[in-house]
Structure formats: C-alpha cells, structure tokens
Design a protein around this nucleic acid. Sequence first.
DNA 1: TAATTCGCTAGACCGA
DNA 2: TCGGTCTAGCGAA
Length: 792
Amino acid sequence: MRGVIIDVDHDLGNREETIIRIFVRTEKGTEMFLERYEPYVYVIGDDLDKIAEKLRNVEGVTSAEKTNRLIRWEKRDVLLVRLKHNKYAKDLRDAVKEMGGECREHDIPVERKYLYERRITPMQTVEIEAENGWVREIRPSEGSVPVKIAAFDLEMYAQDRMPDPKRDEIIMASYVDSDGNKTVITTKKIDAPFVKTVETEEQIISELNRLIRENDPDIIFTYNGDAFDLPYLKERAHVLGLKIPWGRDGSEPRIRRSGGGNTTVEITGRAHVDVFQIIQFMAAVGAINTFKLDLENVYKTVLGREKVKIEHRDIAEVWRSGNLEDLALYNLQDSEACYELGMEFLPLYEELARITTSTLYNIVRMSTSQIVEWKLIQEAYVAGKIVPRKPKEEEVRARMMQSYAGAFVRQPIPGLHENIVVLDFRSLYPTIIISHNVDPDTVNAPYCSREEAYVSPVGHYFCKEPKGLLPRMLEEVLKERFALKDRMKKMDKSDPEYRIVYAKQQALKIIANSAYGYLGFARARWYSKECAEAITAWARKYIQDVMKKAEEFGFKVLYGDTDSVFLVLPEGWGVEKAFEFLEKINAELPKPMTLEFDGFYKRGIFLTRRGGQGAAKKKYALIDEKGNLKITGMEYVRRDWAEIAKEVQKRVLELVLGEGKPDKAVEYVRRIIDDIRAGKVPKEKLIIYTQIRRDLDRYEAKGPHVAAAIKAMRRGVKIEPGMIIGYVITRRGKSISDKAELAAFAEDGDYDPEYYIHNQVLPAVMPILEELGYTERDLSKGSAQKTLFDFT
DNA sequence: TAATTCGCTAGACCGA
DNA sequence: TCGGTCTAGCGAA
C-alpha cells in the first residue's frame, strides 16, 4: 500500500509498551498503522561493560549493547540502551548516574527516534506492507497521493466583551474543504445557498463534528485555532454536554500549554495547521510585511484579495438586528481566506517537515532556531554523532551575558549620488561557515595544529578536517538551493511544478539564513559564541577587503552594510566595469563565497543624521533606470510614523530622485502643510502604529503609545502585550503623551496640526531637502500661511 | 522556551 | 528652560 504520512505519534493510553501510530493517506482514504517500537537512549561512561551488566536488571530496559558513536570529534564506545517505554527514561537516568555514567538523547521524542531509524519522514510518500494494521515494512516511495484539506471558523455571540465559552454561545460555524464543500451552519434562517440552518447551538457543534468525521480531512487549517477557536469549541461543547471527537482515534483535540501561557491544539491523526502561526513566522523571517496580522490584512497583502470584514465588537449587533447575509458571508470567507492562505504556504511547510523529519503539526509551530536544531539533530543521527545536551538555565543565563561584535557598516558619504552599483555576497554567513569549516566541534579543537586550521581574524582557529556537521549540512543546503534556483530560471512561472520548486528553495533558504543566528542563540544545543564571532569577524574582513580593492580598482566607495558595497562609477565607466571587478574578486575568494552584482541605480541619496555628524547608516533611497524607487530604513518604511509623513516623504523622493525637480517638491510640501493646518487630513493618515510590548504597568518611560493605551484601558479596552495599537495626537493636552489617543477615540478632525507638521512631516522630508540646499525657511516663502509659521 | 548585532530617532525624564 | 541621558521601538543585514 502506498500513501503519504500525515501524522506519527504513539499510543498515549498504553503505558507498558511503545506502540507507534502512523497515519497514512492512501488512495482509498487515511488509515492508521501500528508498530511496536523500543526507543533508544545512549549511555556514556568509563566502565560501560559494568554499567551494561547492571542495566540489564533495571526495569524497562530490554537491551544494552556496546557500540560506538562520535562524541564531538571523538569516536567513543557508548551503550545503546533500549526501553520498553519512555516512562522508564527518568529512572534509567538516575540509575545510570549512580553507576557513574550519563544518558544522552533521552529528551528526543520517541516518534522522532522511530522515524530516524526507519529513515522515513512525515509528508513523505511511503510504501507500507502491513498485516491487520500492523506494519511489517515501511519504506520511502515515489509519487504522491493527494491529501484532504479543510478549514473552519467560528463566530460567537458576546456583547461588549471577549467571548467566554462558559456563557457565550457559538452562533455560526463555517467549513470549507478540498472537495469543494462550503457550509455555514447557524441557527437563524439566512438566505444564502451555503447556509445550513439548524435549531440549536448544540446542533451547530454536532453538524461540524459530522462534517469533520465524514469528510475526514488530513489537514485542518484554522486562523488562531491554537489560542482561540479550538479551545473555545472544546470548552463550549463540554458546557453543553457534548464532545468534539475529531481525532482519528475518536479522541478530542488536546490542548497543550507551552511555557509562555500559549496553547497549541493537537488532533490525533490529523495535522492541525494554525495558519496564524505560519503568518507570524513568515513575518518574523521577513517573508511577508504587514503591521497587522489579522486575517483581512494578511489575506490582502499575501494574496492581493479583499474579503468582507465585520469588527468583533459589531458581531453581536449584526446578529441581533443587522444583515445576516453579510455575517454569514463574513464567516464563510474567514474559512475560505484561511484555507487559501494555508494552501499558499503548505508546500513550504511540507518541505520543511520533510527536511527536518517533523510532523506538519510540529513544524508549523517551530521558530527558526528550532528548525535549524531539528535539522542538525537529524543530520547528527545520520552521521552517527551524539546530540549535545540542552544547556541548563544557569548556562543559558551565562551565555546571555556574553555579547560579541557583529557586522561592519561603512560610514556613508552624505548627499546625492549618481551611477551607483551595488554588489553583495551571496549567502555571506553560510558561505563563510562552509569555506572555513566553522563548527562547534572544529573550533579550537585539540586534534589539529594551527597549521592545519583556518584562523579567524579574532584568533579562533578551525580545523580544516574533518568537515563539521554544520558546514556539511549547509554545503548540501546551498548546493541544493542553487540548483533549484537554476531550475526555476528555466521554468515557466505558470508551471504547477514551479510553486513546488520555489517552496523547496525557500525552505532551504530559511535554514541557511538561520544557521548563524542559531550559533549565537543562548538556548541552542550547538551554541558557540566562538563560531558566531569568528563568522562576523571574517565577514567584516571580507567586506572591507572588497571595499579597499574597489577603491584601488578606481571606484568611489559610497557605503556598505554587512555583505554589500555601494560603488560610484567614475565618469565614463559603464556597468561592465563592475563585472570585471567581480571576476577579479571572485577569483580570490575561497569557495563557495561569491560576490554578486545586485543592481545599478542611476541616482541615490544618503541623508545627514539628525544630530549633524555625517550621514546616517541604514537609511537611504535609490532609484533605478526604470524609475523604480527603493527606500531603505527611512520613515517611509517604518510603521511608527503617520501615513501623511510617509506619503509626503515618498513623493519628495520621487520628485528629487526621479524627476530631478526639488522645487516641485518644496511646493508640494508647502501645500501639504497648508492642508494639515486647514484640518483637511483624514484620520487614517494620522494614525501612528506601535506595538505594546509589555504589561502597561511595567513601563518606566510612558511614551505616547503607552499613554494612549492606558487611557483606552480605563475606558474598558483590553490591551495586551504584543498588540499593535494605532494612536493619534489630538489637540487636547500638554505633552505629546497627554494628547495621544487611540484612533478609535479620536474624532475625525481632532488632531494637532503643529505636531503633524513639526514632528512628522518635516522630520521626514527636511533632511532630504536640506541635502539639496533648502532650509525650513524656504518652505514658507510665498506661502499665505507664512506668518503662522513658528521658526524659533 | 525558542536566531544575532548594528544603528537611528522620538520623547520622557532629570538635574542644573 | 535647556540640554544631556535613558527608554523604547523599529528597521537593516
């Protein structure tokens, strides 16, 4: 039988032996297969024979065989101890400790060990031979089997408060799936083809149960189902005396509490994919950029489509006396948008799951560090290396105290520049790791001499042989990724295969880009400050070398940050000179380090810093020959600036860089200032968005965003860490904080024009205009408002 | 329980 | 009232 592995776990009810359960989608449907398994634990120590002898009498141990594994760079004898059940692991550890040994890999989950040993992974197609559901053999196979996918969403009735499952009923549930089912279940009669009206709330739940059981999806998408929909549904069902037996073994969803008080919800035999978790992750790695992560915003920015939005606080009212068709449509579109977003990222996550031998459920909830770590653990298994232990809390604290030097950022030359070439290193940190064999096990290792090592600019040395686990992994990852990118170039974008190839290379990119940060991450098993600081030291050296050589070659070096250089072409030089330079540099670089051509810009501007003192780093704008403007670091790209300031800044840059008409820019700014004074600016353009990052009473300095949040809280608005709030500076109050009010509490037209002129628009545009010789005074010339200007 | 350092700027805060 | 310092947030890479 052939199929795709959807989920792997072990029977939690059985405490005597370990029964691995593998849920496989086959052509006929999804089936559960079982296999008895004995998880392993390694024991290291001096007198292994004696320990082995004693261990054979310890409860739960089925075998203890001597074998060898690599511990860091050393091949050592270890005991491979097998257990009947993982519940014996704790006692084993204590017993081993008493015998003078130590356990290793006791904290790797049983399912993972099983998958490593069978050399299979979730989301992979496998061939299974089974008897009465018991696996005889399971092995990787070719081809694919389509999986079944669904999404659902709930609406609750709660008047002016957060819905509470103890009191507040579920009024609507929507369900969509890959078979084309689309349903909204509700208790009111609504005239829409997709609505199914039932009598009671209980029937909404049982109807949803039926849809899940009958359609039997392998993947269930939710949007915030971890924190909200699923815990709510489960508790509400219990309040009503119902169950939600969505698990493939008839179990209810399991709510797991992680450290930060966050919950995740697991459904046996299915992959509960909370798309909100994916979106948060994609925002963290910079793959998507929206300041609000609510479904409507994300749907718009990721897929470019709009959906109906009804504010949570309005749902109760619409339900009582509003347009029910709208509410039903909103509910349906929540499921549809969630489904479409999930489908957008599914290929990426399937690939990440395969690369790291993780279930879809797990991978969707991992951070970048966890992804790297599980990838390394998987590689360690294959290489016969024992996985390092997790650091103790004390160790973590000590590591966090230690900082190290990072990237080099060149002081830019302020002002306007023309004919700018940007060059950058392709995957700089990963290629440094590969070319210098940077690894926690090769750094300052005793088994090689300094002559057999790469010596970093800060003095750490790295044995050239053998290849470390990390550089070996990254070499594979980069090789594969570059091959995929080449393939993509030859493909048609409409080819369905294109998306898959794109997702594969994106998965590899995430891993490559996270490796360096992982080394400097205090909770990492493979933490190494020495490696992290050697990488940045080499990076500084290489980029500064390039700058020096560029100058010798005849370029003017304008700027550079971490892995890039901005060069000005001298009079009469064409872009081909840059390629000539690249060739020269690349001939000298160790493999696979490569300097690449990134772009040519006809004009660019670097601005003098607020306090004077030269040009600001990490803030500039470039425009290419087609007129495409690229703005970096400036107010325009920051969410904590009002739209009016950002919009004006962008327009000024267009006029200055694109059209070369600074006079027009000055005229334009003048007009905007008049508009602001005249009270013509709509509220949406005045909102400043800022994240509340802690509990409100824990702020030492109460900035405007905190002040606005406190006022809103007193009016009954719930403010929680992590929320992004939007506020407006009104006329009411003395300090800026006094005047700050959440946008919801600010009347249209109630804004402080002087604040928006002097603290928003002018700071965004004056540095640009000043670079061209204008002063603030020039903005008032000929203006009817001249006398109102306060220049002092 | 979950990647790093470098850098800019605002607005509050505090003491002279 | 002024100017320096500190807190806080966000972005670049």
